[in-house]
């Protein structure tokens, strides 16, 4: 095995403060994904410290098992459940933060007072590592001689955990699955009692510069239709500001129209959208939302053109 000859002190003074900073990031970041990233950062630094302290196999296992497997599992679950909302900052128990900080400082102080002073100087692992020809060989000799029964027990533990995770994550259906007819009947009942629109939800907006699913459709009055974008995007606030875009398009149209008017006096009617159905104005948002996306921008432009003439 290649000896890792980096001076332990240097590694400690680099990785130690970084680990403390990462640990504070884990606690203080409001978004769980940032917390997970800080945690992975702490674990990688810890692996570097292990490597410098004569435990190269443990350093590799730290990166593979913790950073590679456990943190990925955390991120997977984070993606499954509620990555869209940040943690609430409201204290449910009065003065919880202050008392918790005091308790944490107390715990750290107790540990430092209890085990923070080693009487002997560090013996080093060189002789122990060399006894069997290396760190890996030494650990193997330990695992398969003195610790063989605990080692076997961990295999039982892992199998139990795998089976347990499968049993827990299995989705047992509590109620029978609804048929299509039942769902249609439910929709019509919701329409009859609460007036919920029974048809499909409106499409996302198709504007001159954006047509992604993050673009909300415009209602006839120029406001955005909340039903036309995903709730998750709305919750994150990651939607395009469509009214601003349509205003921009209207301004561009007006500019082009003014230019055309200045150069060539006889302007053909640029956009003939035909007579608008009168019922559109008084209709409910859900009925017209599918018609809305383009109409907001182009109507404003047509109006601007007509005004400028």
């Amino acid at each position: 095995m290649i000896p890792l000859t980096i001076e332990t002190d240097i590694v400690f003074w680099i990785c130690g403060p970084l680990m403390v900073a990462g640990a504070f990031g884990l606690v203080l970041f409001r978004k769980a994904v940032y917390s997970a990233l800080s945690m992975a950062f702490v674990m990688v630094n810890l692996a570097a410290l292990y490597a410098a302290m004569g435990a190269p196999l443990l350093a590799a296992a730290q990166i593979i098992v913790y950073t590679g497997a456990i943190m990925m599992l955390f991120l997977f679950v984070l993606m499954l459940v509620g990555v869209d909302r940040a943690d609430s900052l409201v204290e449910t128990i009065k003065g919880q933060r202050v008392w918790t900080a005091l308790a944490a400082i107390g715990v750290a102080g107790l540990i430092i007072a209890g085990i923070g002073h080693v009487a002997a100087a560090s013996a080093g692992l060189d002789s122990a590592n060399e006894a069997y020809g290396g760190n890996v060989q030494g650990l193997a000799a330990m695992l398969f001689n003195r610790y063989v029964f605990p080692f076997e027990l961990t295999s039982a533990l892992l199998i139990t955990a795998a089976v347990g995770a499968m049993v827990l994550a299995q989705h047992a259906r509590l109620t029978p699955k609804k048929t299509q007819a039942e769902r249609a009947a439910e929709r019509m009942e919701a329409y009859a009692t609460a007036g919920v629109h029974p048809g499909a939800l409106p499409n996302s907006g198709v504007i001159a510069r954006h047509n992604s699913i993050a673009t909300p459709a415009l209602l006839p009055d120029g406001s955005i239709s909340g039903e036309s974008v995903s709730e998750v995007l709305l919750g994150r606030g990651a939607i395009v500001d469509t009214p601003a875009l349509s205003a921009l398009t209207a301004a561009n149209f007006a500019g082009v129209a003014a230019e055309l008017e200045g150069e060539e006096p006889p302007v053909p009617p640029a956009l003939d959208t035909g007579p608008k159905p009168a019922s559109l104005e008084g209709a409910t948002p859900a009925d017209t939302a599918e018609l809305a996306p383009e109409s907001g921008a182009s109507d404003a432009a047509v109006e601007d053109e007509e005004e400028s003439k």
Binding site: F12, G16, M19, V20, A23, F24, L26, V27, V42, L49, M53, Q96, R97, T100, A101, A103, A104, I105, V107, A108, G109, I111, I112, I115, G116, H117, V118
Partner: peptide
């Protein structure tokens, strides 16, 4: 000793996060 203090600080921060 320094490494043990670092471990104690990390443990304390972990406890802080767990409680808050």
């Amino acid at each position: 000793d320094l490494v043990l203090w670092l471990a104690a600080i990390l443990f304390g921060i972990g406890a802080l996060g767990l409680m808050t």
